[in-house]
Design a protein around this nucleic acid. Sequence first.
DNA 1: ATATATGATAGCATTTTTGCTATCATAAGT
DNA 2: ACTTATGATAGCAAAAATGCTATCATATAT
Lengths: 91, 91
Amino acid sequence: MTTWKEYKNYIKSINPQEKKEIEDIEKLASIIGEIIKQRHNKGISQRELAKICGMPQSSIARIESFETTPKIDTLLKLMQPLGMTLNISYI
Amino acid sequence: MTTWKEYKNYIKSINPQEKKEIEDIEKLASIIGEIIKQRHNKGISQRELAKICGMPQSSIARIESFETTPKIDTLLKLMQPLGMTLNISYI
DNA sequence: ATATATGATAGCATTTTTGCTATCATAAGT
DNA sequence: ACTTATGATAGCAAAAATGCTATCATATAT
């Protein structure tokens, strides 16, 4: 039986392209995760945030549950009321 | 005659919602702008970057010319080979 | 003049996100 | 028991991004 962690490390070791894709997925997951955390910290429900952003609650639910991959403008629209934004950094 | 700058400030002053949207647009523009600048710094053509990312050159051209608003994963895929990434910051 | 590289653009099909509305299960409070 | 709030989910239409291919204008080099 191979664990997920072992599999991930295996992929990383043999496939640079897949490695980059995994990094992108992890980055996206961390961004979405921070949005969820910040929304909880502020005690805002999906419905409330949806109203503020002018978008349906279902859209937020889909994004937070990783059902869809949002466009960059949608992401910024979500982050704005939570006091968050995105910045570029160089590796 | 009203200049664009005057109009923008006017909108900002009277419409908080529009103000946020403008901030999002400016943020997106700065991100895309940095991508273009970094690509030029590295002396990489759209075709070369496209090949690295595994996407057509036309897609990159559309994004860099603000013809389309990319999904967050597409953006990260573009930034990765340029040594860039996105980070969250709090206002 | 010719060849090459580049970014912009076009047309089309496919995939995906988004908006809209409604519903469901669950939990919490009264 | 009953209401209320919440997040998840479903179905559908509309909008938008993406992939693919090809072409064009321009600039640059030979």
